[in-house]
């Protein structure tokens, strides 16, 4: 599994709207089962992020910052 980058997620500011899940091109975002301080579920990142920033762009609550690795990482180390 190639991981080209990662994101930071402000889970407390998330309102659990799911829009990032469908927007994630490699499909490596999935909603959590537990909830944040406001009772909303929030996204979790698994390996395979391409730093394409789609999640950041669609998020109405500005939860994402996106980082691209200088060289892709070849294992699961990059996972959240």
């Amino acid at each position: 599994m190639v991981t080209r980058g990662t994101v930071t997620i402000n889970v407390e500011q998330c309102k659990g709207c799911d829009l990032c899940i469908a927007a994630c091109r490699p499909g490596v975002l999935a909603m959590s089962t537990d909830v944040n301080g406001n009772g909303y579920r929030f996204p979790l990142l698994s390996p395979g992020c391409t730093a394409c920033r789609a999640c950041r762009d669609v998020c109405p609550d500005y939860c994402f910052e996106v980082f691209k690795f200088d060289t892709p990482v070849e294992d699961d180390a990059g996972a959240a």
């Binding site: 659990g16 829009l19 669609v58 109405p60 500005y62 910052e65 200088d70 990482v73």
Partner: peptide, 30 residues
Amino acid sequence: LPPNRKVATALAPLQLSGEHHLCPGCGHPV
């Protein structure tokens, strides 16, 4: 993290804050 560069910030340069009360899934903040 491995050597990297930030490719997208959460907020726009002129944005003072990301906190607002609009509904989940609202398109306006985007």
